[in-house]
Write a protein that binds this DNA or RNA. Structure first.
Length: 429
RNA sequence: GCCGCCGUAGCUCAGCAGGUAGAGCACUCGGCUGUUAACCGAGCGGUCGUCGGUUCAAAUCCGACCAGCGGCGCCA
């Protein structure tokens, strides 16, 4: 048995092979039929003829529907007319299941494809995304292992909010109620006191009624937390991480990037140093380009896009005014109105993919900030305890893995970066 | 939460100054020995989202409801 990718090579010319997979396309001209076979590694054209198979067998193979599953035996030939340069002259075959009418045909409406995502996954385009996605997840973990981090796991069912009060998913819990996690951050913070450098990959849940091209209600969050590192040191780590992930995709996914129409030159440029600027500088520059924006305004989707058209690589934006971010970011001691925090904005209009910061490590300051946000420190007693017993400076971040994949794969909607997207109106398939 | 849009064949859509439903694809049958989401011919396929109203007559006009899509805000 061979994989399709394997036999697409001069070494196999003239040799008998056996492959199995699914019918990708068929064409028949009466006495000759072309069956393009697909497996997880690629596609190859096979040629069936009455001469080789006889009337009845020929009729069987030439009438197979798209996505029929079968095993083919034959001889490899080089032929420029074949879609991948080589073809198999069929000598024998075995059908596992005949397919009469696969629901996905050439007219593909967005909604129909979402309803049939379990089948659309088989497409070349979506398979390519899934392969890149696999690389990104592995590279994220490999990067942190290579820098001496421990992978840890936090609970998904929680009783404290990390990002403000209105976005929690409530779940019944033995007569009371818990929420689905929005971020593992607070739990990661507990673990730096024993492990110092930790990371996790887990789903996060947001109950905002978002209907946008870059929001999911359930998304995959790559998060890390490190002791003894400040805001700027954290950005160094994140920059190395993104470079590492992009490098891996360049090494492992060239065919997939070609299918997706993503230029390799773009990715190579993103393995070069990123830009950094403060929020106030960014506002000044935006004003110089004529944008109607002032210090203290939040960066909306439009603003992010308008700003990022001037840059061809990711940009860290730091030192946001404290009114624009939540309570745990550490205020800059030199300018307490601004925070030692950062967002990483991806180019080409993809926008924010990372949010991170140096965390407040002084107990009084944390308490003060919580009160400004009308939060009860007693609800966060265990988080407060971290500032009470051997508190240290530390920083962390969260990466939206699906957003990063959408950017790397040049997709126009985050729903196409994840196999089974969960949005405000979609829980099937 | 706010703004906009759509619902007609399995799929993608056309039909809308009101006159009784159409194309392409898919599927079935027939033809074709080099096709590239092949091509040619025929066939199959619809309570026009639901309920109500106006009218001699409604896919088309009006109202309500249901379902879905896109964008904003929020964030990753």
């Amino acid at each position: 048995m061979h994989s399709i990718k394997e036999i697409l090579s001069d070494e196999f010319i003239g040799k008998p092979v056996t492959v199995h997979g699914w019918v990708y396309r068929t064409r028949s001209s009466g006495k000759i039929a072309f069956v393009v076979l697909r497996d997880s590694s690629g596609i190859v054209q096979s040629v069936a003829s009455i001469a080789a198979l006889g009337d009845e067998r020929f009729k069987t193979i030439s009438s197979l529907g798209i996505e029929s599953s079968l095993e083919l035996q034959g001889t490899v030939k080089k032929d420029d007319r074949a879609i991948t340069g080589y073809e198999i002259e069929v000598t024998d075959f075995k059908v596992y299941q005949r397919d009469e009418s696969f629901p996905i045909t050439k007219d593909k409406g967005e909604e129909f494809l979402l309803d049939n995502r379990h089948l659309w996954l088989r497409s070349q385009e979506f398979s390519a995304v899934l392969k890149v996605r696999s690389t990104v997840f592995k590279a994220f973990a490999d990067f942190f292992y290579s820098e001496g981090y421990y992978q840890v796991q936090a609970p998904f069912m929680v009783s404290t909010a990390t990002e403000g009060g209105t976005t929690l998913f409530k779940v019944p819990f033995f007569g009371s109620e818990v929420s689905l996690t929005q971020s593992a951050q607070f739990y990661l913070e507990t673990m730096i006191f024993s492990l110092e450098k930790v990371f996790t990959i887990s789903p996060s849940f947001r109950a905002e009624k978002s209907r946008t091209w870059r929001h999911l209600t359930e998304y995959w969050h790559g998060e890390a937390e490190v002791a003894w590192v400040d805001n700027s040191g954290m950005m160094d780590i994140e920059e190395r991480m993104i470079h590492f992930i992009i490098g891996r995709v360049l090494e492992e996914n060239q065919p997939e990037l070609a299918i997706l129409g993503r230029d390799m030159g773009d990715l190579r440029r993103w393995t070069e140093p990123f830009l950094r600027m403060t929020y106030s500088d960014l506002i000044k520059r935006a004003q110089q380009t004529g944008m109607n924006i002032k210090y203290g305004d939040d960066l909306g989707s439009d603003e992010e896009k308008q700003i990022m058209i001037h840059y061809d690589r990711p940009v860290f934006v730091t030192h946001y005014p404290k009114e624009l971010k939540t309570f745990y970011h550490r205020p800059d001691p030199k300018n307490p109105g601004e925070l030692l925090c950062h967002d990483l904005l991806a180019p080409e209009g993809y926008g924010e993919i990372i949010g991170g910061s140096e965390r407040i490590w002084d107990p009084d300051q944390l308490k003060e900030r919580m009160e400004e946000y009308k939060l009860n420190p007693d609800d966060y007693y265990w988080y407060m305890d971290l500032r009470k017993y051997g508190s240290v400076p530390h920083s962390g971040f969260g990466l939206g893995l699906d957003r990063a994949i959408m950017w790397i794969c040049k997709l126009d909607n985050i729903k196409n970066a994840i196999p089974f997207p969960r949005t405000i109106r979609r829980t099937k398939p």
